[in-house]
């Protein structure tokens, strides 16, 4: 699927003036992505959080990372779309250069990316950066 770019997301979210619209937008993003098939959700791909779980699969093509993600919670799934908008179809260097904390702060969603085992989002960011570092 075609993910919105991080610039588009920043613009879209800035357009809404209340939290309900912002969260509805994130929920809708979460519902749009297909997620992983049940067979693809193997234990090596899971990042367990104590609130929700996240799965991450990837491949590389022409030096660029292509990710697939899934979560059992739809808001987390939507937030994963935001993460992927920054990282998907990028080179290792582009991934490592991207300031995800600043991006989430700009979106006023920084509480979701704080270091916690809660929703697995931070762990996914860590895993993506680790994959990029290993290149």
């Amino acid at each position: 699927m075609q993910l919105p770019s991080s610039e588009e997301i920043v613009d879209d979210l800035a357009f809404f003036d209340d939290w309900e619209q912002r969260y509805q937008y994130i929920i809708d993003l979460g519902k749009q992505i297909p997620g992983l098939s049940e067979e693809a959700k193997t234990p090596d791909k899971i990042v367990k959080g104590c609130q929700s779980s996240v799965w991450l699969d990837y491949k590389t093509e022409d030096g660029k990372f292509l990710f697939e993600v899934d979560s059992d919670a739809v808001i987390v799934q939507g937030l994963l779309v935001l993460v992927l908008s920054a990282y998907n179809n990028r080179t290792a260097k582009e991934i490592l250069d991207f300031d995800i904390d600043a991006y989430f702060t700009e979106l006023d969603l920084e509480r979701h990316i704080t270091p916690t085992r809660g929703n697995g989002l931070r762990a996914i960011v860590g895993k993506i950066r680790q994959l990029a570092s290993a290149v």
Partner: peptide, 22 residues
Amino acid sequence: HPADVGFILDKQGVAIRTGDNC
């Protein structure tokens, strides 16, 4: 999902726990 419920409650000032409850 309980986590989604927790996020939306939080935005309304309502603090609950969600997840496996240890």
